[in-house]
Design a protein around this nucleic acid. Sequence first.
DNA 1: ATCTAAATTTAGGCTTACCTAAAAAATTTA
DNA 2: TAAATTTTTTAGGTAAGCCTAAATTTAGAT
Lengths: 222, 222
Amino acid sequence: MANVKLSKSEENYLKSIFNLSEFGNKQVSTNSISKVLNIEPASVTDMIKKLSKKNLIYHEKYKGSTISKSGIKIALQIIRRHRLWEVFLHDKLNFKWDEIHNIAEELEHVSSEELIDNLDKFLKYPKIDPHGDPIPNKLGEIDFVDKISISDLNINEKGIVSRIINEDEEFFSLLKKLNIEIGTEVKIIDKIEYDQSLEIHIDNKSVIISKDIADNIKITKI
Amino acid sequence: MANVKLSKSEENYLKSIFNLSEFGNKQVSTNSISKVLNIEPASVTDMIKKLSKKNLIYHEKYKGSTISKSGIKIALQIIRRHRLWEVFLHDKLNFKWDEIHNIAEELEHVSSEELIDNLDKFLKYPKIDPHGDPIPNKLGEIDFVDKISISDLNINEKGIVSRIINEDEEFFSLLKKLNIEIGTEVKIIDKIEYDQSLEIHIDNKSVIISKDIADNIKITKI
DNA sequence: ATCTAAATTTAGGCTTACCTAAAAAATTTA
DNA sequence: TAAATTTTTTAGGTAAGCCTAAATTTAGAT
Ligand SMILES: [Mn+2]
Ligand SMILES: [Mn+2]
Ligand SMILES: [Mn+2]
Ligand SMILES: [Mn+2]
């Protein structure tokens, strides 16, 4: 049972499974893992077997996978590393908030507990990363700031962007094009029945964004 | 010819070959690589073939390997990354000088040129790492500070420890036991004919160290 | 309830980076 | 210089982590 070091691949799978499971509450399909990791389903099945044998997830054939207690614990540590490195890259090395994710994706696998604890201290124990995501502490405790997203606002309501969920390159460049970042004020102008698109104001300019985009942008109502 | 990203293994081999070659001047034996990397000679032969095909080294069967111009260039970049991370770990995260090497051994493989350049700037372009080793600049230029070692001193001469060559755990703990670190003053008391051991004073206490140990500790004469 | 389509798993393969054992070449010793 | 030793390479294998193609199971549509 002694925590044997996980490979980079195992860590990436575990983190993705945790993220897809919504804090360990949902069963995760093989296909969904395949999609987020860009790895063929057959390969995902292989890794699921490996992680199951290590009791980091439970798997019922043809049904899906559930992350275990110890799996969650490890996933939270990987997320902690990722987000602390993102803070470092953003606050200390002056990277833009949309340039840090990929580098942190590598740095998160350098697993020295002392390294992360010292980094945490150096950064003065930050609570959120540059995308507004909460950072688990050493014990894996995490502030549950499940904010509402743009699509939860009603017409004429306003919010301040506080968190970006999707961290893909394309999503970042879309946000850039829309002039949306953490702190941006948005106002709902109209909700389009047809496909639930939203017309919103950013810097007093009107744009229409899809429901999917709106769901990926969390805000604080003002 | 376009620089395809090297694997962690390839990078470690290349760095070791460069280090063994004394700045590209010496031919490197398969066995010596095997020893520093703790990998069997047969496996080293495999990798030598791989690196040869990429023109990073030249290899003459049964004779040895020579690092190429482009091999040197890459090796210097890896060394740059390693030493910059060591400075960061030591100066910013408050690690001791004997705790940083292994972590840097991992961090050096996170290869984003922007990351390293920003780190360099953040650290204010340091010239040497915490072991006294010079840090190559962005262009791979490196201050050639080939200092003399303890074994080059004569009886009654004194020096200040300026650089530790061997970065193995065991060597570090030996130095710790001997109370030797960067900045320590040493004085030669006696040179023992038999095996060229040296009797030296550290903090006015006398110890005897082997020629090999003395060779691995560079000093500035005072 | 059956037929179809989608999701999942199995089977068989590939590459990387290692290994051991044995063969071949080079070096040292006598 | 021949024999012994050391170094290096070749041959054959393994585990991790991926792939494609084919089989199986489940879920959705009629
Ligand atoms: Mn990652
Ligand atoms: Mn983030
Ligand atoms: Mn390394
Ligand atoms: Mn160093």
